[in-house]
Each structure stands twice: as C-alpha cells, then as structure tokens.
C-alpha cells in the first residue's frame, strides 16, 4: 500500500524515485470526481461488453452472472458507456454521495 504523499519521508522513496508497486494508482479512487452515475437496466442488457471496452477508466467490471456494471470506486461519470451501449440500456443519473 503506497503511503499518502505528504507522509512520505525522503528515506521512504525508492532509488531514483522509482515505483515498484505496479498498478498502485488504483489506490486513488477517481469515483469521487463523479457528478453523474451510469445505471444499467439488466432486463435489457445483452451482456455484449461494449460498455466495458470503451470505458477509459477501466471502471466497468463483469459480475459472476455475466452482467457488466460500473465500478463506482473509479467511474468518473463520463457517460461514454451510456452513449455507446448498443441497446441503450444504461441511463445516467445525478450522483448524490
């Protein structure tokens, strides 16, 4: 787990300020940026994965039952998935945290 930036002492940095904890950006939850939230209507969803493929934030996950849903920890609410869903089964609602 990477420490918060302002708690890091110089001795904690790796040589050359490299970062060997790959993929550690996932500790930063971009979901807090969101003002809109995508909501899937599972009754219409054909489980095609198009929304997943187009999400710039890798914020759509496939669940056990094969449906694709936004991971709200990372979803920034751009609306691309809703726009690109071939059956139009994703609606966008105003986020209330």
């Amino acid at each position: 787990m990477a420490r918060p930036m302002d708690e890091i002492r110089w001795q904690d940095l790796e040589i050359g300020a490299a970062v060997s904890e790959h993929g550690s950006s996932s500790e930063y939850k971009t979901g807090t940026w969101r003002s809109l939230r995508p909501v899937v209507d599972k009754d219409q969803c054909i489980r095609c994965g198009v929304c997943w493929l187009y999400c710039p934030d890798v914020a759509i996950k496939q669940s056990e039952d094969g449906y694709f849903e936004a991971d709200l920890e990372y979803c920034k609410g751009c609306g691309i998935c809703a726009r690109e869903c071939p059956v139009g089964c994703i609606s966008v609602v105003i986020e209330e945290f």
Binding site: G23, S24, S25, Y28, P56, A59, D71, E73, K76, G79
Partner: peptide, 11 residues
C-alpha cells in the same frame, strides 16, 4: 494501464 489514473472524464 489501470484504474485510478487522473485523465479527464471521457478521455
């Protein structure tokens, strides 16, 4: 290239 990157919405 994983989640948590700081690109703008819809980049």
């Amino acid at each position: 290239f994983t989640s948590g990157h700081r690109a703008c919405q819809g980049c």
